[in-house]
């Protein structure tokens, strides 16, 4: 009887968003674990299947990222100088660059590695940091995901590896460019970077 009362109280007072969607930790767990499963799946051992594997991983990963917000945060106040079309193009190219750079790395390295979930920190009801640890032979890497509740689902808008925020790092680079150049120039440079990446991928 006592138990039933406690359960009733819990149900009555737990905020609605807990039902509406999963909590941040669970949200990030699913794509990471699923990604790891694809990575370790022996059926992708054949090098010719690397591309298929990569697309599968990207498919899983991108669902949990909010690239609009991530990209917007790297632009910071420069966002105001971008037209809606430029913002859109910027976000698209930038997310492709990130995908390219990071999927390579993930595919190359996570094979013998493990991801541990260290904990979670709720900043507000709609913002949280999920702390993880990549355990590898060479040592551990702390990776924190900044997440935000948007339209009822938790999305990642920044990643911090060993204290280095992805958003802040790109912001410093974009700032450097945007001090001297226009939004269009930045977008052009992003396209060029993407081409470069594709060229080295072919090698």
């Amino acid at each position: 009887m006592k138990k039933a009362v406690i359960i009733f109280i819990l149900i009555a007072f737990v905020p609605a968003f807990l039902y509406a969607d999963m909590r941040p930790m669970e949200t990030i767990k699913i794509p990471i674990d699923e990604g790891m499963k694809i990575l370790t799946d022996p059926k992708y051992k054949d090098p010719s299947l690397k591309k298929v594997q990569r697309e599968k991983i990207w498919d899983v990963v991108r669902k949990v990222f909010d690239f609009t917000e991530l990209g917007g945060r790297t632009l910071a106040t420069n966002w105001k100088n971008f037209s809606p079309d430029q913002r859109k193009e910027f976000t698209e190219v930038f997310s492709e660059i990130l995908g390219n750079a990071y999927l390579d790395k993930i595919q190359g390295a996570y094979k013998d590695e493990k991801v541990e979930y260290v904990g979670k920190e709720m900043i507000t009801d709609s913002k949280a940091i999920v702390k993880t640890k990549i355990v590898r032979k060479k040592g551990e890497i702390l990776v924190d995901y900044s997440m935000k509740l948007k339209d009822n689902s938790w999305k990642v808008y920044d990643v911090q590896a060993e204290g280095i925020s992805l958003v802040q790092n790109y912001r410093s680079q974009f700032n450097e460019i945007l001090v001297k150049e226009s939004p269009d120039d930045l977008i052009k440079r992003l396209h060029k970077k993407l081409e470069e990446q594709q060229k080295t991928d072919k090698k």
Binding site: K50, A101, Y102, D104, K105, I106, Q107, G108, A109, Y110, K111, E113, I134, R136, K138, I141, V143, A161, E162, G163, I164, N169, D201
Partner: peptide, 12 residues
Amino acid sequence: VLLPGYGSESIM
């Protein structure tokens, strides 16, 4: 540290 977890030993 900027790019966690990429392989140093693997050729992509």
